[in-house]
Design a protein around this nucleic acid. Sequence first.
DNA 1: GACCCGTGGTA
DNA 2: TTACCAAGGGT
Length: 365
Amino acid sequence: MPAAANPAVAKPVPALPDPGALLAWYDRHQRRLPWRAPSGLRQDPYRVFLSEIMLQQTTVVTVAPYYDAFLRRWPDVEALADAPLEEVLSAWAGLGYYARARNLHACAKAVCERHGGQFPADEEALLALPGIGPYTAAAIAAIAFERRAAPVDGNWERVVARLFAVADPLPKARAKLRVLALTLLPRARYGDFAQAMMDLGATICTPRKPACALCPWQSPCAARALGAPERYPVKAAKAARPTRQGVAFLAVRADGAVLVRSRPPKGLLGGMSEVPSTPWETGGSVHPAIHAPFSASWTALNATVTHVFSHFALELQLWRADVPADARAPAGHRWVLPGGFDAEAFPSVMRKVLAHAQPFFTGPE
DNA sequence: GACCCGTGGTA
DNA sequence: TTACCAAGGGT
């Protein structure tokens, strides 16, 4: 007869994570952020919406000045809905993921036209709005409307993966992590709990070197019990990032104006302003002169602009032509004086290009 | 599910 | 310098 386990020496079963322990920690350690309401008060849904869109894949430090500028310029959803898209894109320039700006504007219009200017409180209704996915719908429902919802973001995934030592690699493990996350929800204070999970992930349960000694959930954490919390969540290998090449045509008028055009409304840098260029190709086999906006004495500058996008790196050679003050802009192009650069929707890569239109523009620094 | 879609900071 | 990372969404 095999020896039965002795209950007297059996390892203690780890306690399930207690939502109350995290909320108590949050009450003492929550971060003060521009988009958060004073403790105990609900935040304006528009402000939650604006901050959540900006914070998608973007850090708190980067978002803060943009959030303040947007709120000052468009203090409510009606003001944003009434703004021209070009102004929204210009104000968004530098933040990246420009489809967010287009959808932000489209969403503001939809809220005004379909919901009378009031954000819906239901996750399902929020999910139907442009630019609002599962995470953002849950975040607005929980934070702005105190609905029972789990806005599972990267912080939640990391915390949950460690609490339960989930070995399945992301992104396949996403469904399992969500199910586990739902088991953590408290009976109330859904907005605080959502933000507590984010604060925990941002300040304690960090990707590298988590501060487990300070964690309110150190006791029930399976990854910590295994001795290697930083190993979670497991992630699938990423594809290598290719490099594309191109030539940008810096046409500078005698008065300092630069020739500019707008990109197609969708896709990479959709709707943003740019200096005309060849297509950006991986082989770099295009003939630059064919793509010049007009014939002129183009001079290859001894300069290369490099920029890294989410899924490829770019190397842009610069060709410059200095033209008379009465030079005409080709169809689809326009001249923009340096004083008008800030009103244009130049993404970061184009600010790097424009830095070579000296001495009239000093560039991103 | 896979791929597209930006940017700046950090180790 | 490379690689990873940050409150994801659309197709």
